[in-house]
């Protein structure tokens, strides 16, 4: 464990909690892409099946359970409890355009053609594009609630911190995982446009609105 991975995990946890609290407190999931949340639930489910097969540490186990629990709770709040506030018309990204190619790539490019490894690879590739429906929805509505931008900031920051974690681990431990690194770079690049808007607008107290 190193400072970049720890702050990365805490940033990820903060994002997940911010989103859950936003929906729960405002009793509304307006502006939130339910499809991205479905993808995140799928990412955690396929990545953390090793909870059933191996124990790494209490931290590892507890964080995985929190991530999975919050992901499904968020999907439940969006599609069941606060379904009336779900903006389905603007959440129109076709999930099959992401899941099918990612599934195919996971079968072609992986470290080991075993069940858990293929699922882990699938979850790594899927996570790198899972935010696309959310970013697509914001581009369609042309704006985002400020709390939603904070959620996206911490979510994008977490994988950027993981990139530094991988530099650290390569230098000090000789560890590197090319699949996770390439996917992590792609994932972080997808946030660059948002990061620019977040820093130039939201941090200056303005509302995040895309050029009409």
């Amino acid at each position: 464990m190193n400072i970049f991975r720890l702050t990365g995990d805490l940033s990820h946890l903060a994002a997940i909690i911010i989103l859950l609290l936003k929906i729960w407190k405002t009793r509304s999931c307006a502006g939130i892409s339910g499809k991205s949340q479905i993808l995140f639930a799928l990412v955690f489910t396929t990545r953390y099946l090793d909870l059933l097969t191996s124990f790494i540490s209490f931290y590892n186990t507890i964080m995985k359970l929190i991530y999975i629990g919050c992901a499904y709770a968020t999907v439940y709040l969006i599609y069941m409890k606060f379904k009336a506030t779900y903006d389905g018309n603007h959440d129109s990204f076709r999930l099959e355009f992401l899941v099918v190619p990612v599934g195919g790539l996971a079968c072609l490019v992986n470290h080991d053609f075993s069940f858990l490894e293929i699922l882990w690879t699938f979850s790594i590739y899927l996570e790198s594009v899972a935010i696309l429906p959310q970013l697509f929805m914001i581009s369609k509505t042309g704006e985002a609630e400020t709390i939603t931008t904070h959620y996206l900031f911490f979510l994008g920051l977490y994988r950027a911190l993981y990139l530094f974690n991988w530099i650290w681990r390569f230098y000090f431990e000789g560890f590197f995982d090319m699949i996770a690194i390439v996917a992590g770079v792609v994932q972080t690049i997808l946030y660059c446009d948002f990061f620019y808007l977040y820093v130039t607008k939201v941090l200056k107290g303005k509302k995040l609105s895309l050029p009409a």
Partner: peptide
């Protein structure tokens, strides 16, 4: 090469 020993990262 990739260090084996499971996925210790979240």
């Amino acid at each position: 090469g990739q260090v084996t020993g499971g996925k210790d990262e979240l």
